[in-house]
Structure formats: structure tokens, C-alpha cells
Design a binder for these strands. Structure first.
Lengths: 234, 234
DNA sequence: TCATTTGAGTGAACGCCGTTAACTATCGCA
DNA sequence: TGCGATAGTTAACGGCGTTCACTCAAATGA
């Protein structure tokens, strides 16, 4: 691990500048506005120069998607770490942080959580299954759920029902998180699905025909979700 | 209402041929593969000819999105009409039909239920709020829910909690469906959000790192959803 | 120190794309 | 029969990703 040479440092900053230009275009024009020629123009370069740093536009967008995945994962971790000891409070803080980030960054959300573009596809295919960006993202949710389950088990559908549906199909999840109680796996999949649905519907503008200020629907669902994570009074 | 002239008939079939070419390109190349030149090539025409029928590529893709919305709405109605009298059975049949269609038509799903492209945006903006395609789509779900609610009310969060969160924010929904009990509005929004989340996650390939055969997760969630629509035993 | 190799960047070109403009030929109708 | 509307053409412009041949400066090694 030797110190980076001057050339390597320059290269790193250039890569960063390319990516930040790409993100700027993404933010104010959608993914189809990201073009090598526009990035190069903004940098005072010509388009073919970018091929010294990325093999194609697709690869550049893929790398950007990877960065965004990391950014949102770090965001979740920060929300969790700032929410005290109670796991339910941690999960609620993470959900709120995720929604806030997504609503504030619709283009970025669309790139990593929307329909898989060729760029995203080729990028994610280069990731080993165990450290798929989605796996590290999901892990931040799984950990508090596991701890909550051991401290104060929440109600779930009957475990034999869960086992019947999940039988042998949780291998990918197990590969990145080790053995997990089937109830926790269910809570994660069910909860993440609901969170994703709420946020994606709002970001993709699929509910504005029915409700204004979808944040209140979000908070309502969060309330009922928190209730479901609390043991029912006997 | 006079019979369409020969010219009008030719025009109609040409429009249909353009759209079907566009859909073919959409299906096996994603939305970014839809190009006027490719469509025209497949039809043995030149690209500018298409401007006799659509003012821009954006408008063509928008019209295609409108057709797809109609297609999926009709699909839901067919599923409902083939599911007998019981409203819960109707809702389950609709959910299954929606998932099946979406999984079988990922590109079409992405176009109308994914991140809004400029094309979709400009198209949906041309729709009046009351007959927004989403509203007609949602109506198919709302109707059985209303009937079920009147026949056999399902458990919901406390109505005062619902009212507090929905206060004055359901105007768009009311405009297309008239007065609706707040409990039904909640059931629709909550249920549609969960259904959308499940299907979008599967179609957009956001869960393959955790679970294989997501259809079983879908069926599991459907089971618990049906339970929640049934009055709890006293 | 000087020659050489490496790397970054350029300019021209190819073939796509959407879109516009000018033009032609055909069809339907009075 | 003639005329206007309609459907189609070709040519062109600018933008795009990408490739290739090239230049020039920086790092390297004898």
C-alpha cells in the first residue's frame, strides 16, 4: 500500500469531476440527459477523453449508481445511529430518512430503485451476490429487526405459514446475513416492501390523483407499522 | 356520428401500426430503444412521415402509455368480473392479475408505473384530474372495497387517527369517486401501496439479492392482507 | 541527463437519433 | 376536370456514443 503517485491523484480527481458532472446532469434532466459530450463540455474537454476513465457511458452511469447506493446506505446508518437505543425508534428514523432523501433526490432514486436501465443492469451484474449493493442496503434494516426480535418478539403470521412460503428461497438473504429467524426475514421483506411502495409511489408521482401531501399517508402507515412491531397487549 | 371515410380508416390503421411498432421496440429494448427511425424502418417508411400522425416521439410514447394504462385497467376489470360475488375474492383476483401482467410485461409496467419520463409527464398532464388514467385504474379497486365495507366492515386504524392524517387531503380521490368513508380511503391507499411495492420490487429486480421466486412472498402477503380484510373474531 | 515509454487529451469521422423544411404525388371531393 | 387536403419523400441540421490516428507532456529508467 504505497502512497498514490501524482498521476494517480490527478486521475482520482478527474474521475470525481466526471461523476459529479454526470450527477448534475442527472439531477436536472433525468438519466437520459447524462451524456459524455455534455459532461466533457462542462469540464472544458472533449468527449473521447472520458474514455480514458470509463469504458462507456453505460459504465459511467453504473458507477454513479454504485455511489448513490453507498450514499443512501450511509444515510440510513446515520439515521439509525442518531435514534437512540430503541430498535423501533431506529427503524422509524431510518424509514423517515429514506423517504426524505428519496423525495429530495427523485432522479437519484429513480436510477437505483427504479426500472433497471442497461447501465444499472451491467453494473449490478459485476457485483458478487453477497455484497450486492442491495444486500448492504438491506442489512441496515435487518440488524435492528434481529435485535428487536431477540429482545421483544413482535407478532407475525404463524411460523409454519412463513416456512411454507419461504422454504429454501431465502438463500440469497442468508448468504449475506447468515442464519436469520424466518419471522425476521418476513418482517424485513414485508416492511421493506411497504416502505418501498410508499416512497416509490410518491417519488414516481403515482398517487397525486388520489391524495395531496403524501407525507401524511407515509406517517400514518409508519404509525400502524410501529404498532405492529409492538407486542399486542394480552 | 357519420361513418368514417376511407381516409379516416387508413389513418386509424396506420396509427395502430405505428403504436404496435413502438410497443415491439419497447418490449425488446426498453423505452430508450423506441425511435421514430426504427419504427418507420419496420414499416417501410421514412421517419418524418410519422409526424403526420404524432407531433413528436414524446407524444407517441405518451399515447402508448395511455393505451397501456387502459390495457391494465381492462385486465383488472376482467379479473374482478371473473371472481364471483365475494369482494375479498375479487380483490385477490385483481391483485394476482396485476402481478401476473406486470411480471409478464416489465417494460410496459416500467413505462406507466415507473419513474415518470418526460413523455409520460406531458401525456398525463393533458388528462383532466378527474379522468386521470390512474384514477380510473384505482377506481377498479375502490369499488369492491366500498361494497365490502358496507356489507362487512373490516378493521382499520381508529377513524379519528385516519381523519387527522387525511384531513382535507383526499380531494383528488373524492373528485373521481365521490364521498368515500375515510376507512375505505385508507384501505385503498394502504392496500394499493403494498401491492404496488410488491410488484414494483419484483419487476424492477430489487429483491433478487434476498429472495428467489418472489411470487411466494407475494402470495404470503396476499394471505395476510385477506386476513386483515376479514372481521377479527370477537 | 537523455531516450523511451506511458498516459491524457485532441480532431476527424461513422452511424445513429429527433426534427424541420421544401417538395411531390396521390386521393377525395365539388 | 380541377383543386385542395393528405401522405409521403429527400435533404439537411445539430446532438449523440464511439473509434481511430494523432500529439504532447509527464514519468521512468539507463
Amino acid at each position: 500500500m504505497t502512497a498514490p503517485s501524482r498521476r494517480e491523484r490527478l486521475r482520482t480527481t478527474t474521475v470525481a469531476e466526471i461523476k459529479s458532472g454526470a450527477r448534475r446532469l442527472l439531477v436536472d434532466g433525468g438519466v437520459e440527459a447524462v451524456s459524455l459530450r455534455a459532461i466533457a463540455r462542462d469540464m472544458g474537454m472533449t468527449a473521447p477523453a472520458i474514455y480514458r476513465y470509463f469504458p462507456s457511458l453505460e459504465a459511467l452511469v453504473g458507477a454513479l449508481a454504485g455511489d448513490l447506493y453507498e450514499e443512501s446506505t450511509a444515510l440510513l446508518e446515520a439515521a439509525r445511529d442518531g435514534a437512540g437505543e430503541d430498535e423501533v425508534a431506529q427503524l422509524l428514523a431510518m424509514a423517515r430518512a429514506f423517504r426524505a432523501w428519496s423525495v429530495a433526490h427523485p432522479a437519484e432514486f429513480g436510477l437505483i430503485f427504479g426500472a433497471p436501465t442497461p447501465s444499472a443492469t451491467t453494473f449490478f451484474d459485476t457485483c458478487a451476490d453477497a455484497d450486492h449493493p442491495g444486500a448492504r442496503f438491506g442489512a441496515v434494516f435487518v440488524q435492528p429487526l434481529v435485535e428487536l426480535w431477540h429482545r421483544s418478539p413482535f407478532p407475525t403470521p404463524p411460523p409454519e405459514l412463513l416456512r411454507r412460503h419461504f422454504e429454501g428461497r431465502l438463500e440469497p438473504l442468508r448468504q449475506s446475513h447468515g442464519e436469520i429467524p424466518v419471522e425476521v426475514a418476513w418482517a424485513f421483506l414485508s416492511g421493506w416492501t411497504r416502505l418501498y411502495g410508499l416512497v416509490a409511489m410518491e417519488v414516481f408521482d403515482q398517487v397525486s390523483w388520489a391524495i395531496t401531501e403524501p407525507e401524511h399517508l407515509f406517517e400514518l402507515e409508519l404509525t400502524t407499522f410501529a404498532t405492529q412491531l409492538t407486542p399486542h397487549r394480552p
